[in-house]
Amino acid sequence: MAKQTRDADFTAFVAARAPWLRKVAYLLCGDWHRADDLVQESVTKLYVRWGRISKVDNLDGYVRTVLVNTFLAEQRSPWARWSARRRDAALPERAAVVPDPDVSVDLRAALSALPSRQRATVVLRYYCDLTVEQTAAAMGCSTGNVKSQSSRGLHALRRLLDHETVASAAGPSERITS
C-alpha cells in the first residue's frame, strides 16, 4: 500500500511538472527530443529519492536542480559527447520543430553556442527567475561563479545576436544590452 501511495504521489507530481521541466530542459539543450531524455532521466532520479524528498518544501526547486545537474553531467560524459556528435550529424532537421524564424531560432542558436555552464546560468537566472544565490545552490558553485557566468553569458549572447535584425517593438538595439 505504501508503495502504491508513493507511486501515485510521484506520478501526480510528474504529471503536473513535466511540461515545465521540459521547457527548462529545452532551453538548456536546444532540442525537444533530448529535452525529453533529460526530463526522463531527472524524474527517474527523483523517483529513487522520492521517499526522502517528497515532503521537502521546495520540490520544484529540487527537481530543477536535478535536471540542471543531469544536463551538466552529460556535457562531461564522453558517451554524451559521442552521442551528441552523432545526433548532430544524424538529425540536423530537428531545428525545424521551432517554427518562428524571427526570434526563437536566433535565440536558440545563440544559447546553444554558449558553454554549458553559462547556458545553465542564463536559463536559471532569466527563465527560472532565480536569484544569484539560488542559482549557485542549484549549480553547486559559488555566487561569484554565477555572477561571472551570467556576465559572460549575457555578453556572449549580445555578441551573437547583435548582428541580427529581430522583429521587435523595442528594436534590436535594446536586446540584452544595458
Binding site: A18, Y26, V43, V98, V103, S104
Partner: peptide, 19 residues
C-alpha cells in the same frame, strides 16, 4: 527582455512529449 524571449522560446510549438 531576455527573460521574455526565453519564455517565448520555451513556449514555442513542440512535438509531443516523449517522457
Amino acid at each position: 527582455r531576455l527573460a521574455a524571449e526565453l519564455t517565448a522560446l520555451a513556449d514555442s510549438p513542440a512535438p509531443g512529449m516523449g517522457s
